[in-house]
Each structure stands twice: as C-alpha cells, then as structure tokens.
Design a protein around this nucleic acid. Sequence first.
DNA 1: TGCTTGACAGAAG
DNA 2: CCTTCTGCCAAGC
Length: 112
Amino acid sequence: MLNAKQQIRPDYTTFRDAVYHVVAAIPRGQVATYGQISVWVGWPRHARLVGHVMRRVPAELHLPCQRVVGSGGVLSPVFLRQRELLLAEGVTFLTNGRVDIRHCEWHPEINV
DNA sequence: TGCTTGACAGAAG
DNA sequence: CCTTCTGCCAAGC
C-alpha cells in the first residue's frame, strides 16, 4: 500500500512545460499573472513555482515572458526590460507603475 | 535532512 | 495607494 502522503507535488518538468505552453499562448498586448497561470496548469497556490520557472526560461525559446506579471499588474523586480517591452506592444500602465491589468488581463476562455 | 530564498498573493493597517 | 506581515510551496544549499 502506498503511503497516503503520496505526491501531491507537481513533477517539475511537467509543470514547467505546462507553464511554457500557457505563456506562449498569451496574446500580444495582454498579460497574465503568476497565480492565474498556476491555476490554469492545474496547481493552484503554486504562483511562486511559476515565478521560479519564469526566472529560468531559456532565451532560445523566445517566450513572451514580459506578459507575465504579479497580482495587480506588478512588474518583475529583476526583469528590467519588461516595462519597455510591454509598452512596445501597446500595454497601458497606471500612474503607480503597474500594468493596467483591468484592461490588459488575458481571458483565455473566450476562445480555445 | 533542515534552514534559507524567492520573477507570488492577499489581507491588514 | 502604500507598507508590512503572513501564508504558501518547491528549489538551493
């Protein structure tokens, strides 16, 4: 009998690939949050793991990493070009420096 | 194996 | 709106 405390833990490789897939699907000019992505890949409350994955994305994949922001539209503290990249694709910002997430947040259920 | 770190989130003051 | 604090969960050491 397997222990009851069996892996309620995501396989990192699988989780990572799922995140890559979601990020690659974010439309130009729109953004998604770490927490939301964690839900979409099937692992709620794993926002920090999404952040960990994003920090290690290989440049060769050319993923639109700039479209992933923190809750409320907070930008990454280490991805300094994020702001200019988002501005370049039409994302609007609020005076407090955050993305105007109310108008730019991605809603994937619209199509599929 | 145990403690620290982190591209997070949400609530409280 | 901003700062601080707590909860969260896996990676690094």
